[in-house]
Design a binder for these strands. Structure first.
Length: 599
RNA sequence: GCCCCGGUAGCUCAGAGGAUAGAGCAGCUGCCUUCUAAGCAGUUGGUCGUGGGUUCGAUUCCCGCCCGGGGUGCCA
């Protein structure tokens, strides 16, 4: 990690003054001094006075005394146990931005802390296109994968496609009955959307049949729609299709293959547009039988118990009892997950496995992890559920069957179209249409991803399509705009024949408060990225990038670069701007958000 | 009933034991012949759901209660 010289020296001298007290890994992390307080950086001795066995104000006094003599320190002021300092400009820039490569390299963790992490996200069903809920999952998944990779972990992003089951058969059955052999090509519709339309048709047909059934047989009034499913013709037919699928019926399998390939081709487009890449995709059709042998094994070892009715259960203490095998010997959801988790472990031998899955499955994962621990897998401690909240609409929850969803592809188009309008307005007449399209894609998708990542994953998001997504304020485009301004300055400099990077910049020429604040903010980048990675929470990095963008825009306003009186000041300010751009681009790229050259 | 998550400015959210609780949006005031105004500066707005407790110090930790969401399947 990048450290200020005065902080390292302070650590050493405090250790000397109180020998044998502080542990080897103890270190001081200076904080930014609040704006209405004197100073730039604060050493908060409340945080570590205890390690020296001293009262905070004693340590603060000692620290202040040490720092007052330090050549890098301009002023020291102690308030309670806070030691506020201002740093001499030359030292401040030397320790923060002077070495840009070192700043970016400081994000990477030491080798001993790097791990192999498998992260599973997206996990779509192949009966319908993806909606905003999936987009949140995908965005969080790839951002966290990016963060973990950026700090040096070996990351294996994987997908598990749920490509079998009754919901798939529903789409298939509706296609057989109402499809007239339509294909994505003949209908000129993306494959996942085409298949999804049959899923909706099935739901409609089923609803009508249930309604008719209820009208004909009033004694069924107390039963739920779900309980009546097999009473309907179309319900029984779907169940029969599932049975034939499981039996390997060639006709059913052929239809299944065809429709799945349509959906997967559609998903590929969606993933590509989002910038998602998986190291491997598992298919539930190939893994759904896994786990049963593990249940048999656990039964033999007394981890599980067979109940009188034949079902196999496990006692999970506070979490309750859980059935892991039905009385007819077939798997339940958790049986499959036990099997695939063990498979994933054997395929990759990761130190950690992370699942990005909605919070309605919190209990499921608690149970899954508890079962794997009871089965005795030492690696079960490395399993975690990255749980995130729903995306609700003003009208309530999104429901595919009722068609009340914000479709992913439609949303992307809408975002990009809005960005395109804004680009058009700002562009000079000479900018080619293709270039505007390119910018709009980066800005529109960036705005969407940034918005989704800005929330803490746990919070339930209320998404109002009519209010749409903003491009101003705390947004992706705000950060991208700072980058575009920097790129523009560099272009202008080139046009005017000003050479900005000829010699090593003279950092001692900088001393304005906006310049110092910008450099200090840049210094925090490695910490912000590492903390976000550690917490598996991209919102921390998002907040940081907004903060950096703000620091830059203030600097931009107050400290002219090309207009600086002294060419040497222009050079060093340009270097500071370039450092800013490098960090912003690095941070956005980590979150799979791009940066346009101009906006 | 039990379990999990949330309740902070009009709205959307930060804040993971420390200073006088922050930001964006919305509202109001200014700033584009000056490196891009997707920007900047200023301003209005808060009993941090509520009642206790621990602590030198609590929005933050613990307990009770209220409100909202999710879960509590031999569904996934």
């Amino acid at each position: 990690m990048l450290q200020f010289q005065f902080v390292s020296d302070l650590e050493a001298q405090l250790r000397e003054r109180f020998p044998g007290k502080a542990p080897a890994d103890w270190q001081i992390l200076p904080e930014r001094t609040p704006e209405n307080m004197p100073g730039e950086l604060t050493v908060n001795t409340f945080r570590f006075a205890r390690v020296f066995g001293q009262a905070p104000d004693k340590i603060a006094a000692a620290a202040a005394e040490i720092l007052a003599r330090h050549p890098d320190i301009e002023t020291v002021e102690t308030i309670k146990a806070f030691v506020n300092v201002t740093v001499r400009p030359a030292a401040l820039f030397r320790d923060t931005v002077a070495d840009g490569r070192k700043l970016l390299a400081a994000v990477t963790l030491p080798e001993a802390q790097r791990r192999k992490v498998l992260i599973e996200f997206s996990a779509p069903n192949t009966n319908k296109p993806q909606h905003l809920g999936h987009v949140r999952n995908n965005t969080i998944g790839m951002a966290v994968a990016g963060l973990l990779g950026r700090v040096g972990h070996e990351v294996i992003p994987i997908n598990l496609v749920n490509d079998r089951g009754i919901h798939i058969c529903k789409s298939m059955l509706a296609y057989l009955r109402f499809g007239n052999d339509v294909t994505p090509e003949s209908a000129k519709v993306k494959g996942d959307h085409l298949v999804g339309s049959f899923y909706v048709k099935y739901a409609q047909a089923l609803a009508e049949e249930i309604k008719a059934l209820r009208a004909a047989r009033p004694e069924l009034a107390a039963k739920t729609d779900e309980e009546l499913f097999l009473e309907t013709e179309i319900g029984a037919a779907a169940q029969e299709m599932l049975r034939r699928w499981e039996a390997g019926d060639p006709e059913v399998r052929k239809l299944w293959q065809m429709m799945n390939s349509w959906v997967l081709a559609g998903f590929d487009q969606t993933y590509q547009r989002m910038g998602i890449h998986f190291a491997h995709t598992y298919y539930e059709s190939e893994t759904y039988l896994l786990g049963k042998d593990l249940i048999a094994d656990g039964l033999a070892r007394g981890v599980f118990r067979r109940r009188a009715d034949g079902a196999v259960t496990v006692d999970l203490g506070k979490l309750g009892q859980k059935v892991v095998l039905r009385s007819d010997g077939t798997s339940v959801y958790i049986t499959q997950d036990i099997g695939t988790t063990v498979k994933k472990y054997h395929d990759y031998h990761p130190d950690e496995q992370i699942w990005v899955v909605g919070d309605e499955q919190n209990l499921h994962f608690q149970m899954l992890f508890a079962i794997l621990k009871q089965l005795g897998y030492a690696w079960a401690d490395g399993l975690s559920h990255l749980s995130y909240g729903m995306v609700n609409l003003p009208s309530g929850r999104m429901k595919s069957r009722e068609g009340t969803v914000v479709d992913a592809d439609d949303l992307f188009d809408e975002m990009v179209a809005l960005a395109r309008e804004a680009c058009q307005e700002r562009a000079d007449g000479e900018t080619a249409a293709a270039e505007l399209d390119r910018r709009a894609e980066i800005i529109g998708m960036g705005a969407l991803k940034f918005m989704l990542l800005k929330f803490n994953a746990k919070t339930t998001i209320l998404f109002d399509p009519s209010a749409s997504i903003r491009f101003e304020g705390d947004t992706g485009p705000y950060v991208q705009y700072a980058c575009a301004r920097i790129a523009s300055i560099e272009r202008k400099a080139a046009e005017r024949g000003i050479v900005l990077d000829a010699a090593a910049p003279d950092w001692s020429l900088l001393a304005r408060s906006e310049e110092k604040l910008l450099a200090l903010t840049l210094w925090f980048y490695p910490q912000a990225a590492q903390q976000a990675a550690e917490r598996r929470d991209a919102s921390g990095l998002v907040e940081y990038l907004l903060d950096l963008g703000k620091s830059f825009n203030r600097f931009y306003r107050e400290c002219p670069i090309l207009g600086a009186d002294d060419p040497a000041i222009a050079r060093v300010r340009a270097a500071l701007a370039a450092r800013t751009r490098d960090v912003l681009v690095d941070g956005l790229k980590t979150l799979t958000i791009g940066v346009p050259d101009a906006m």
